[in-house]
Amino acid sequence: MIVVELSDRPGQLARIITPLAECGCNILNIHHVRELEKEDTARVEIAFEADNKVNVDTVVESLSREGVTIISYSPNIQTFRETVILIGHVFTTDITDTIIQIANSGIQVASVDARITLIEEFSSVKMVLQSNSEEKLSKGVELLKQICKRKNLYLIRSVRE
């Protein structure tokens, strides 16, 4: 998704569409936002598909060269996520080590949330694992499964419907 500012007169949209097409992007959606307080400009939000991040950078570069004012852009590469919960002596078995092992396998641990009880009782940790490939994500979950087995933790995975 890229958000640009254009002056509100004919032919302006072409200034951004052409560079996008030249970079091999597939436009998914264009949203034209006319702001009341800025009568002569319009904000345009363009959602597009790019093969990878290199393409997105090229798009930003070529739009800048065209003199288009870029307000924001987010690469928005497709992500696959799985939420999991670990129950057991999560902290005494070194949760940091668990997270690092997952991260080292190329999986992003996008968030961690915990409920800590007395040290002798079971604690619970929720993690959101994230990756740009479904296959990598499954491998990451598989690795977590092995870690949990070793550390005697109880793993609850999500079910995909």
């Binding site: 129950i87 915990a114 109880y154």
Partner: peptide, 9 residues
């Protein structure tokens, strides 16, 4: 081994 804390999370 499921705990109320895990359910809450």
């Amino acid at each position: 081994d499921i705990t109320p804390e895990a359910i809450e999370l």
